[in-house]
Structure formats: C-alpha cells, structure tokens
Amino acid sequence: MKKIKVRAQTASRLSKARKATRIARAFASKGCDASSHSSLARAFSSANGAIFMPYVCCGDPNEKFTMHLVSALVTSGAGAIELGIPFSDPIADGKTIAAASGRALSGGMTPKKAIAIIAKIRKSGIEVPIIVMTYYNVVYAAGTSHFLSAIKAAGADGLIIPDAPIEESGSLRKLCKFTGIDFIQLITPNCSDSRLKKIASVASGFLYAVSVLGTTGARKNVSADAISLVKRAKGISRLPVAVGFGISKPAHACAFANAGADGIIVGSEIVNIYSKYVKGRKIDEKRALSAVSRFARKMANACTGKN
C-alpha cells in the first residue's frame, strides 16, 4: 500500500516536471526563458501600466540606509528593485552613480555583503523582484557559478551586466539559465532592427532599453530615438521592455509608459535626491527617505501612463 502511494507521488512529480519542461520549451520557442515565468514575469504581467523599477546602489553610504531605502521605495510603489553591487570602474555609469559606487566601496561594501543584504531584504518580507546589477569583473572574480547560486539563494531574480554584450555573455547566459536567474540584455537606440532581433532571441526576463547614447545620469528630456526604441523592441519581441538611463521626471516615465514600456528604471535621480543628505558615511535618513518616497510615489503613479 505504502509503496503504491510513493509510486503515485513520484508519478505525479514526474508529470509536473514534464509539464514544466513543456512550458519551458514553449517559452523557449517564443524567445522567452522558462525562468521568466518566475516573479519577474508575474510582476510585469500583473502591472497596471509600467512598473517602477528604482536602482539602489548597495552600501551608499551605508548598509542600514540601503535596507531602509529599499523598503521605502517598495512602500512608495516600486514594483521591482535593481540592486547595484558597486564596482571600482563603472564605465557604463555617469558621475552620479560612479560617485555613489565610490562611497559604497570606501564604506567597505563587498559583493558578499551585498548578497547578504538581498537575503535580509527577503527576510524582511519584501517580495518584489530583485535584479542585481554589477560589472562582469565582480562576477568573474567571485567565480561565475558561485556568484549566481549565491544571489539566487539570497533571493535575487535577475542579473544585469552592462559590460557583457551578447557576444561575450554566452557562458553567463547558460549558467544563469541553469541557476534560474533571468539574464537581462541591454538594447540601445543605435541597435539596428537585426541586432535587436538577435539580442531579443537570447535575452530573458526583460529587455533593458537604454534611452540615451551614453552613460547613466539624469537628463532633462526624452529623445524621440528612445521612444522609437521602445516601440521597435515591443514590435520585435514578446519580452517585456523596461527603459532606463537618464529618466529623472514623472513626465519621462509617463511618455515611456504610453509608448508601451513595461518598466521604468530610475537610478541617478534617486541618488541625487538622497545624496544631499549624505555626510561621509552618515546620512540624515529621515529627510532623505521622505524626499525619496515623495519622488517615488510620483514616479510610480506616472508609470501607469497618467501624469
């Protein structure tokens, strides 16, 4: 009797596994990844308009503030968090985030500590997707497989490596797929349609549309090229499209949401807002968090396409 029950359970488990494989294959054939059926995909599909995805530089100016900042952003309407693990030479970042990374590093932030912070965020009950953003050398130095399983175990859902274009990300993508991490590829306004297609065919999670030619950093306006990039990407791929680099105002978020963007990523402007309250490794948390929360609420609202 017992034996039969065990066998039945095994059979049911097997059939579930087979079903999962079928779903995975179906997704793969559509240019999606099975793992995007995870929390990232759910976050995009259940959103009303675009989701607000703020970037947080882990450890700027200290660990405690990072925890409180993430919590305040989520309370204010963030649908996902992009958590930056600082690197000494962030070539894709402009002055603001480069300075934030510098502060975090001089405060002693390390990849290990950042991964522990992800675990703490999860432990505090925050469930929105967490996407790790860092540079390739940080991952490589830790050992790629080791790094990926560590962030996965801590509770991260995706990974962005701005210095790993598709030609160099093959092994990273394979290991991410194996680990169950969405590897997010960037697309830019100067990508041809054929290159967009090529990138979309290997990307998972979402396409990260870079709205400017250049580095991260708050800009005053949204370019027509950026709007057209979102539209082109939506036309080419079934993957969600999140826009980032340069977005600093609710009007920007609104314009991209109306163009069809599924996510709006804001980094430098948030750093600009709270860094006014930074003194060395200390920060006037109360004022910094209330200023960031005000901004985040406006942005989250604008992401619905209404401004």
Partner: peptide, 17 residues
C-alpha cells in the same frame, strides 16, 4: 576578437555598433 582566451569586447551595448 581574441588572443587565445584573452581580449574580447566587454563594452556597453552602445559601443558594439
């Protein structure tokens, strides 16, 4: 693109084209 296993083009997407 490579010298053995060294070299490559580890740059932001904007620079690839």
């Amino acid at each position: 693109r490579y010298f053995g296993k060294f070299g490559g083009q580890f740059v932001p997407e904007t620079l690839v084209p």
